[in-house]
């Protein structure tokens, strides 16, 4: 078995660890057969295309990382450089094609608001469903229930299916759940995008409190001030590789230099 990461979030640990050894990530290369999908296919073509669909293309390569308690890392890089994929990889949602990843301690990934929300279930049920997906046990969920309900501000709507909620309400619910439990390793993709002004203010305060209690933080953001506030070091990602990994100042120097440099196509 290639993948030896702890596949499940574990109870709080005194020595959280997030370590990646020479890992790479490959995605199935579907471009090969999609091209001919609209055309009439002969059997030969069909066989050829099925073979193609098992081909993969590299997405992330040559990843090395060794984070222990106290590490706060910002991820910067242009769109499509692999920041989100890297976070999903660190969260354990994508297996490495080669190399290894080790994770100990409870990991909470705040990657997308809708993930794990069952649209036909009520808000109340979704608190249970989503928390369980985070690896939290039922007694802890029950203990956190009041806090989640209060923070989401959805007391009177919790008995209704989530599909009847507005986008902002879905976000509030999802955010309230994800931030209700202490994490050893916290992975955040973009620092709070939507929600009304009042909620953003509240959410920032709550997230900051969570961040200060977490032992390892990895946050991807395009916002330089966010990373400068939260992080002690930063990674500049480019074309699926770690181009630079150093203190925040040093990484931003390299990144900004790259941004201003003329690009060769």
């Amino acid at each position: 078995m290639k993948w030896r990461s702890s596949t499940a979030p574990q109870p709080a640990s005194d020595h959280p660890l997030l370590s990646v050894e020479n890992a790479s990530v490959r995605f199935p290369d579907s471009s090969a057969h999609k091209r001919t999908n609209t055309q009439k296919q002969s059997l030969v073509q069909l066989a050829h295309n099925s073979a193609h669909s098992f081909r993969t293309k590299p997405v992330l390569e040559d990843l090395w990382l060794d984070l222990r308690g106290g590490h706060r890392v910002g991820l910067v890089g242009p769109n499509g450089s692999g920041k989100s994929t890297f976070l999903r990889f660190l969260a354990g949602a994508i297996p490495p094609a080669s190399g290894r990843i080790f994770r100990t301690g409870r990991t909470i990934a705040i990657l997308s608001a809708q993930a794990g929300l069952e649209m036909n279930a009520t808000g109340y049920e979704n608190i249970f469903l989503r928390s369980l997906l985070l690896g939290v046990k039922l007694p802890e969920i029950r203990a956190a229930m009041d806090d989640i309900i209060e923070f989401s501000g959805l007391e009177d709507r919790l008995q209704e299916p989530v599909r009847t909620y507005s986008a902002g309400m879905v976000l509030r619910l999802a955010f309230s759940i994800s931030t209700a439990f202490p994490a050893d390793i916290l992975l955040i993709d973009e620092w709070i995008g939507t929600g009304d002004a009042a909620f953003i203010g509240k959410a920032k305060a709550r997230l900051s409190a969570m961040v200060s209690n977490t032992k390892i933080l990895v946050v991807a953001s395009h916002n330089e001030s966010v990373i400068r506030t939260l992080c002690s070091e930063a990674i500049f990602m480019l074309d699926g590789r770690i181009a630079h990994h150093d203190a925040v100042d040093s990484t931003f120097a390299v990144y900004n230099h790259w941004l201003l440099a003329p690009k060769t196509p």
Binding site: A8, A91, A93, T107, L111, S112, Q114, A115, G116
Partner: peptide, 10 residues
Amino acid sequence: KNILLQSSVP
């Protein structure tokens, strides 16, 4: 699918 893309649940 949505869940698997985001979480490490086996």
